[in-house]
Design a protein around this nucleic acid. Structure first.
Lengths: 330, 330
DNA sequence: ATAATTAATGTAAGCGCTTACATATTTACC
DNA sequence: GGTAAATATGTAAGCGCTTACATTAATTAT
């Protein structure tokens, strides 16, 4: 049923090579012949076999994208942009959600490598322990690897980063300018970028002569934020502002604060991270650090496009995040 | 650099067929030989070439997933679940965001068909005009197509649906039980499921002897919700409840209502659709219809798994959504 | 008109793998 | 020990395509 090039060639009364040329280098075929072949192509609804083609050309024009979880708004934005831009370049995206576990991650990576992708993009799935990333370095020996929001040394490994430390530090500075001094940071610092943010907080606090120990490790999600607030209150500590490593945590914190009757931002300012749609929809609307997921994706695609053309490409691109001020602070 | 089977065979002193057997049907190889080959496989970091394999076996073990926009929380949940389940079955997912335009959609579909995927899943990207879907029907002539949240007649085309009409109707009934009569529906009915929801609203209102004309066409997003509220107020119409076709619209409506001083749910109840994380994070938390994205994905995967095994599969599976009550109503 | 170019098409090898079939080796049994 | 059956391995074809090279047709120059 499915037509192959051989069939087209026979129907058109030409050789298989001519059909291939009509498809790939039409200018090399006499106009008359070309039209004849194109007609048959149309009539038979011919669909090229990219697998056979890929085998010959040693490229499937496919990019492997590994992300922790597309349901995360931040990752979704990155994946979306990657896919759009690659499609424009004629590449498809092979998507995998790696989740957190190393074993799975290795298995997925392998599955994707076997599919002969032209490059791999890892969206925030690098472990903070360097030993956990051996498989990524190995992948770099086969093809270009671009890390979004993490960094790793290795041949063929490139990174697009957001200066998360700077983002949180700016948030601290902003709050200090408002005269707030009892600033706390809620974090789940399991990831590499989680660590960077925490460091940014510490730096910012020290620079302003404030207590850099104002850090609470909390779980992810709404519960984590609520938990942090509960602990602050239970610990009887005075607090005027809370910065969270994620918008969702910040919203959980706001909900708890509201429940206990703390006016926001009157008594407590709250700042989130990622500037996701949640920051717009929450009440009060959440001030948040924008770490530019779509810009990062754009950079990553640009890097690979250059690389595919044999151009030199910087090992590392760092973007600077910015604070988007909304109702929850001010 | 990259090892191929031929190299492995030579290093291990066996034929290429034996290497292939070690990889695919190890029980057919003598233990001693197998170990010898496996050792070389290990040492050389051999990575199989799934493209060559795919060419022979006529299957790339890949599923094409076309979605309108992964950034939409609902679609993200579907895509996430699809990917997880297919990975478990040893399939990879080729992702494409089709956006709204027909031309692009056709192009993407073709690109994916060429890549010889084993099946295609369309997540909410069917047009409500039947003529716009010819390319999907054609795809069905090549491989199984599963539609999530839309329906289309055609060979090899299967659907997993949520009874959206029922979902909205139940929302109406719920509000009526609370004694609310001036119920409005905010919709952007461009999609097939958008239409279904609107019909559900009309049915529900008629069944309860209420005015089924209480429908406002609004844009998507927060603005649409605000716009709807503005129009209700400007039109001087009494209203006690608003149902929206999307959570985001509902939140926009709530924000506007709050701004104008309408207590929620005291004066006005608000109900959203999709039961996304937004419904949990908003203030007040939003009552919303859960249309079970992950269950739908699970059904779709199940269908295809059965199909691949040659089992008979129903043309259409319909799931019943349920109302999740939160603070914004009650 | 004929030779020399240039353009158009065809022939066939090979991309890296799987597997039917042929051949070689081992095991079982008398 | 010899034969038959069972096991293990090898040989080679072919999956659908691209492209270098060979061949043939169409131009151009002389």
């Amino acid at each position: 049923m499915a037509m192959k090039m051989r069939d087209i060639a026979e129907l058109a009364g030409v050789s298989i090579a001519t059909v291939s040329r009509v498809l790939n280098q039409p200018e090399k075929v006499k106009a008359e012949t070309r039209r004849k072949v194109e007609k048959i192509l149309e009539q038979t609804h011919y669909v090229a076999n990219a697998v056979a083609r890929g085998l010959v050309l040693n490229s499937m024009r496919t990019i492997g994208v590994l992300t922790v979880d597309v349901r995360d708004l931040y990752f979704a934005e990155v994946v979306y942009t990657l896919e759009r831009l690659f499609t424009e370049l004629g590449y498809n995206v092979l998507l995998s959600n790696t989740g957190g576990e190393l074993g799975e991650k290795k298995r997925y990576l392998r599955l994707i490598l076997e599919k002969q992708v032209d490059a791999i993009i890892l969206v925030g799935s690098v472990f903070k322990e360097p030993t956990g990333n051996q498989h990524i370095v190995e992948a770099g020996q086969h093809l270009p690897v671009v890390l979004i929001n993490s960094h790793l040394a290795g041949e063929n490994i490139y990174s697009v980063l957001c200066d998360d430390a700077h983002g949180v530090r700016e948030a601290v500075n902003y709050l200090v300018r408002q005269g707030r001094r009892e600033i706390y940071y809620f974090t789940d610092s399991k990831s590499a970028s989680g660590l960077a943010k925490k460091k940014g907080f510490i730096t910012g606090m020290i620079e302003n002569g404030l207590n850099p120990k104002h850090i609470l490790e909390v779980a992810r999600g709404l519960e984590g934020g609520a938990d942090g607030v509960n602990r602050l209150i239970a610990g009887n500590r005075p607090f005027e502002a809370i910065i969270c490593g994620e918008d969702l945590t910040a919203i959980g914190a706001m909900k708890a604060l509201t429940k206990y009757g703390y006016p926001i931002p009157g008594a407590v300012a709250v700042i989130g991270y990622n500037n996701s749609v949640l920051a717009e929809t929450s009440t009060p609307a959440l001030t948040s650090v924008d770490n530019m997921p779509s810009t990062m994706a754009r950079q990553a695609v640009g890097m690979l496009a250059d690389l595919f053309q044999g151009k030199k490409v910087p090992r590392k691109i760092v973007l600077t995040p910015s604070l988007v001020v909304r109702e929850s602070s001010g």
